[in-house]
Design a binder for these strands. Structure first.
Lengths: 334, 334
DNA sequence: TTGAAAGCGGTACCAG
DNA sequence: CTGGTACCGCTTTCAA
């Protein structure tokens, strides 16, 4: 395969009648170049359509100006927003996003090799990593920031939303209003976020001596929630008066099923709450009572932390935990 | 800033007691290396946690194994799916996706410079580009494939869904059923996709001698559609019996507004149709009658075309147009 | 099959 | 401020 005929700094130098070093300097901020030289170079560069080769630059500077973003399930309504934000913020800082979308966590291992090969300056992971995997990045001094997955140990930095706190607030409000019988629509078993929400919910119930609750797996998805709701309605001895869902999409699935399959009114007959604050949560059909994750602030924090650590790799790990925002919709009597 | 202490092929070579070339060969498929050498190298590599530097490799091979994906509005419900698919397919072929998310088309120009600097092997653009911009890629022989934006001229390859055809099918069905008075909720004025859908819709109406229609700008968004619907209901002389929306999200906004603001039943009182086939379209609350874009097939086609062109840059431009799939929901009497 | 050496397209340090 | 030169880490001839 023959090499593409793209112009290099040498071509520009020759055309401009200066040295290659001079050309290089023109593309480096804060280098001392006389106006005359710069003009000549710019003119030649424009003529040739010259663009410096970022790869060659990265090779010597050991900075690729790119970060890897590893995301597990892009179709989750909540991630696209995160991704768009990240991409925007990094772009503003002159950094590129290398996207790694895995659909099963088992793919992660394979992906990590590639991540490393690409000499990314940092990694934002919205997937679970083993300590072993984390250590690889540590060894290379490649900053790693978890997004909404925190690790028990202090092995890595993370920005996340306080799942437990949010779930507690929501649950407590339901209890305070006087709900007695609960159902919980859970997330996937291997989702840390899901587990935390569930644990906090149950703990809160039990603190108020409420043991009348059942748990049904909803898998974070609309269809999962639909199935869970049907099971709940068919198998449970009595109907709950409040259903707490692991996320918004589940809550929407629950509401739809209650309304259209069982002719049950929400919130009059049963209260339903979600978690996330995704776009559709605010749609009139649902008007979900939920906890909104402050996505913008979270991603901004992630980007800031990343840039700091790229600059100063020795920086200690840090966790930034944001509180969710209670959104009072009209899907629950609260 | 000091260079990160990452191991190179020389380190591996030294530890393994072979030449650096030998190490290199071990990482190249189809190179002749004796089993003995390979074993030594692999052992040393594992010990050091060596990963070849993809940037250095790219520099010499002139192949970065990465593709730029330029997307305008990630929060559009429809793009995340596309992006996830692209990322998956490319990943399977050993290629990485460099994501460029722009939120206004004016940012495009700045982004393109970066795209070029990164020496991507190809570009998938879900944004509009000027002929000038297209030409830049041509000059560099960097394959460019448009996703759902086709250019009038044959200046570039594209994969897209037949917007006109889909809109025509939908409209014709409404007409055939006997709807007489129409409203169209349009997309943004600068969206080619929106324009095509609208044009085909109106043409179809006029072919059946229906001139009783009004147009309201919905901007492809839920809120936009909500506003448009309110305007329509307040300002139009008479209510339409069918509302054709530029996309699903608009249709959902329309349905919600009709139901909850005006107490109008869909589809009994007014039929509503969308376009795209996004996830929420199938939710029980909406059960949208719409045209689904065959996203998987489209992205797969885009990836195939891209790989072919990376391999053989001289390949002629090609457009692959997919028909949308009519989804009969329950939001329209058809 | 193996190792030596010449680049790929830049950056950075150096003396002038 | 400028040009010369030694790399960055790898691939790829070319001889041995």
């Amino acid at each position: 395969m023959e090499r593409k005929k793209t112009f290099t700094s040498y071509d520009v130098a020759r055309l401009a009648g200066v040295s290659q070093s001079a050309v290089s300097r023109c593309y480096k901020s804060g280098a001392s170049v006389s106006k005359k030289t710069r003009d000549k170079v710019e003119k030649a560069a424009k003529k040739l359509g010259y663009q410096p080769n970022a790869l060659a630059r990265s090779l010597i500077t050991a900075r690729s100006n790119s970060v890897a973003v590893i995301i597990s399930n892009l179709t989750n309504l909540y991630y696209p927003e995160v991704l768009a934000q990240l991409s925007q913020y990094f772009s503003e800082k002159g950094m590129r996003v290398l996207l790694f979308a895995v659909d099963t966590e088992s793919q992660v291992d394979g992906v990590l090799g590639q991540v490393l090969q690409y000499q990314v300056d940092g990694v934002i992971a919205a997937v679970k990593l083993t300590l072993e995997q984390i250590k690889k990045f540590e060894d290379r001094e490649t900053p790693l920031i978890f997004y909404n997955r925190h690790i028990n140990s202090h092995a890595a930095s993370a920005v996340c939303c306080d799942q437990a706190d949010g779930a507690t607030v929501l649950t407590q409000k339901l209890i305070d209003f006087g709900h007695k019988k609960f159902a919980y629509i859970s997330g996937p078993e291997d989702s840390m976020v899901g587990i935390e929400r569930q644990k906090a919910t149950l703990t809160t119930l039990e603190k108020s001596d409420i043991s009348d609750y059942t748990i049904w797996n909803g898998d974070f998805s609309y269809d999962g929630a639909t199935n869970a709701t049907c099971k709940l309605m068919n198998e449970a001895k009595q109907k709950p008066d409040a259903i707490i869902c692991a996320n918004d999409v589940s809550a929407i699935g629950v509401i739809d099923t209650l309304r259209y399959e069982y002719n049950i009114k929400v919130p009059e007959d049963i209260s339903v709450v979600g978690f996330d604050g995704v776009g559709p949560a605010t749609w009139a059909s649902f008007n979900l009572t939920t906890i909104r994750q402050p996505v913008k602030r979270m991603t901004k924090a992630a980007v800031e932390m990343m840039l700091e650590r790229i600059d100063t790799p020795s920086l200690a790990n840090e966790k930034r935990v944001f509180s969710g925002i209670f959104i009072e919709g009209n899907s629950a009597k609260i």
